[in-house]
Design a protein around this nucleic acid. Structure first.
Lengths: 343, 343
DNA sequence: TTGTACGCGTTATCAA
DNA sequence: TTGATAACGCGTACAA
C-alpha cells in the first residue's frame, strides 16, 4: 500500500509537503504541488482515512441504528440520513436491532469502539430506562433519536406528532359513519405507540364514544401480532366496523387474517394504518394511511446530528423536531352508511 | 478519552500487559488480569478500534454497494449480508448508487480510502467495461458481485439463474393457455436483464412461438419505465394477453398503467414478475412471481467474501455461486381459456 | 510472565 | 514556503 512517505520520495519533497497539498490547509508552491500530483498519479496513491481518523480524532462516520431495514419505513429513513450525511462527507454505519434491546446494547458498544462521531438511533422498546443510551451520551457521543424517544432522557429527536395524526385519522373514520372502532396498538413501551393510542382515544372522546375495551388490542409493530390480534378482533362476537392498525407491518398481518376468514375490506370491515409504502396505489384494497415523512425524518436527523457534532456543545436543552404526517384517504375506509349490514 | 496507557497506570501494570489481557493472545497471570479488568471497569475504558485498525492493517469493515436499499430486494440482501458479516465480527458500510455508475465510482474511492477489507457490489449498468472495478480489485480489495456480474471481469459472484427462472415462468404462462406473451426487460447493459430475456425467448421458441417484436420492450428496472412501457403495451392495437415484467419496481409501474386504463388483472391481462416482497399474499391482484433468494444472496456473498479475505489469495479463477429461484404461481396468471375474449 | 520501545500513516508544530 | 519531528492509541518483538 502506497503511503505519503513514498509519494514524498518520488516527488522529491518532504512528507509534510505532500500532506499540505493533500489537505490544502497550507499553501504550497505551484511547482512542487504539480510534482506531488504527478507522483500520486503515477504511484496510484490512495489516502488512508484510518490513519487520518486516528490523528484527527474523528471518523466522519455516523452510526445508524434502526429496527429493520427491510421495513420500508426504515429503509426510507436510512436513505434520507445517507443523503444528508454524504452531503457533509459523513459515512453511515447501519445496524438492525429487530427491536431487541440486547442487540441495541451490543451495537452501541461496537459503535463506540469504532469511535463514530454521532448516532442516529431508533430505540428498541424496553421496560427499564435505557442506561446504555445515557452512558453513550455521557461518553461524549451525540445522539439524535428518530421516530421514537426513550423515556426520561434528555436527547435530541426527530419525530412525527403521532397523537395528532392518529386523531385526524380516527376523525376521518368517524366522519364516514363508523361508530364501532377498534385499534391494534404497538408496544406500550414505545412512546410512539402510546401517542397513537392517545390520539385514537381523544378522537373517540370528542365524538362522545366510549371505546369498548376488547377493541383495544396491544400488538408490537410486527407482522405476526397484527395477524394474531386481527384474528381475535375479527372472530369476536361483536366485531368493530373499523380498525386502526398502528403500523404497516401489523396491517399486513391483519389483512392476512382478513383473507383467511374470507372477509373483504371495505365490504366487511374498514381499516386504516400508519406508514404508506410506495405501492399503496396499485393494489387492492387501497389502504387509508397516515403517511409519515420517513425520508425527511432521516434527513433532518442527520442534519441535526452533524450540527451537534460541529458545535461540540453538550445538549443541555435538547431539540425536539416534529415533522407533519399526511392522511391519505383511500377505499379501505369506506362510507359505512353505504354498506349493507352496517349499523 | 481513556487509553490503554491510563488503564495500565491505574492497574499498576505495563501498557503491554493491558494489551495482552485485551487481545488474549498472550497469557497473563490471573491476579494482574483481574487488576486490569477492574481498572477498565472503573475508568469506563472503551478500546479504540481505529488505532487497532491502523496497527493491524485491517478494518473488519465490508463495503456494501447496492442500487437502492428502498427496494425490498436489496434491503433483504443487505440484511443477509449483515447477518453473515456480524457473525464474523465484520461491519457493513452501506451505499446506494441509484444505478448511476458515477456514484459507483465515487463510492469505490471512498471505500478504498476507508480501507474496507472487501466489497459486496451490485454493479450499476454501464456501456463500457467498468475499469474502476478492475482497479479496485488490483489494489488488493477482494470483491464479490451480487445479483449482477460486470462484463469481462474475473470476479467472484453470487447470482440466480435468471434464464432458467424466466424460462420456467414463461413455460407456466404458456401452460395456462397464453400464446400472446410480451416482456418488459431491464437495461440490456445488465447481464441479469439479458438472461431474463433469453429465458423468455427460449421458452417461446420451445413452444414454437415467434414473439412479436413490439411485445419486447426494454425498460431499466425502475418504476417509471414499467409505467411508460406498460402503457405502450396496453394501448397497442393488438396487445399481448400476458406480460412478464422483469422486476418488481417495474411491475408497480405497470400496475399503475393498468389501473389508469381501467383494465383489471387477470381479467384483461395476465402478468408475472421477478422479485416477491413479503406482502404479495394479502393484496390483489396476487402476482405470480419468481421469488429470488435475496437474503441468501447477501448472506452467501458475505461468507464468500470473508473467506477470500481470510485466504488472502488472488482470485485467479473466480467462484460463481448460483442460487435457485422459486416460481410462485398466483392469480395474476389466470388460465386464459377461462377468460372471455381470449383467443 | 512482564515491561520497553518501536511502528502503523497521518496531521500539525516548529525551526529554518 | 519547506523539512524534520512529535504525536494519535494500539499491538508486538524483544529483552529482562
Amino acid at each position: 500500500m502506497i503511503t505519503t512517505k513514498e509519494v514524498a520520495k518520488k516527488a522529491g519533497v518532504s512528507i509534510g509537503t505532500v500532506s499540505n497539498v493533500l489537505t490544502g490547509n497550507i499553501r504550497v508552491s505551484a511547482q512542487r504541488k504539480e510534482r506531488v500530483r504527478k507522483a500520486i498519479q503515477e504511484l496510484g496513491y490512495h489516502p488512508n482515512d484510518i490513519a487520518r481518523c486516528l490523528k484527527l480524532n474523528r471518523t466522519k462516520m455516523l452510526g445508524m441504528v434502526v429496527t429493520d431495514i427491510t421495513n420500508p419505513f426504515f429503509s426510507q429513513m436510512v436513505r434520507g440520513a445517507e443523503e444528508a450525511a454524504l452531503k457533509h462527507d459523513y459515512l453511515l454505519l447501519t445496524f438492525n436491532t429487530d427491536d431487541r434491546v440486547e442487540r441495541e446494547k451490543q451495537v452501541l458498544l461496537v459503535l463506540r469502539a469504532r469511535r463514530v462521531d454521532g448516532l442516529l438511533l431508533v430505540v428498541a422498546p424496553t421496560a427499564e430506562s435505557p442506561s446504555h443510551i445515557v452512558e453513550t451520551l455521557n461518553s461524549g457521543t451525540p445522539i439524535v433519536c428518530l421516530d421514537r424517544v426513550p423515556p426520561g432522557i434528555k436527547v435530541d429527536s426527530v419525530t412525527v406528532d403521532n397523537a395528532a395524526a392518529a386523531r385526524e385519522c380516527v376523525k376521518h373514520i368517524l366522519s364516514v359513519g363508523h361508530k364501532r372502532i377498534g385499534i391494534i396498538t404497538g408496544s406500550m413501551q414505545l412512546q410512539t405507540a402510546r401517542e397513537r393510542l392517545q390520539g385514537f382515544e381523544k378522537a373517540l372522546k370528542e365524538a362522545h364514544i366510549t371505546p369498548k375495551a376488547g377493541w383495544i388490542q396491544q400488538g408490537d409493530f410486527h407482522t405476526q401480532s397484527g395477524y394474531r390480534l386481527g384474528r381475535e378482533l375479527l372472530l369476536s362476537t361483536d366485531r368493530p366496523s373499523a380498525v386502526l392498525v398502528s403500523n404497516w407491518l401489523m396491517m399486513i398481518g391483519f389483512l392476512k387474517a382478513l383473507g383467511e376468514l374470507e372477509l373483504v375490506c371495505p365490504r366487511d370491515i374498514s381499516v386504516a394504518t400508519f406508514d404508506d409504502p410506495p405501492m399503496s396505489d396499485v393494489f387492492r384494497p387501497q389502504i387509508t394511511a397516515v403517511a409519515q415523512p420517513a425520508y425527511s425524518i432521516g434527513y433532518a436527523g442527520a442534519e441535526l446530528l452533524i450540527q451537534r457534532i460541529a458545535s461540540k456543545r453538550g445538549t443541555e436543552n435538547p431539540l425536539a423536531i416534529r415533522l407533519p404526517a399526511e392522511l391519505k384517504i383511500r377505499e379501505s375506509t369506506a362510507d359505512s352508511t353505504s354498506i349493507a349490514g352496517e349499523m
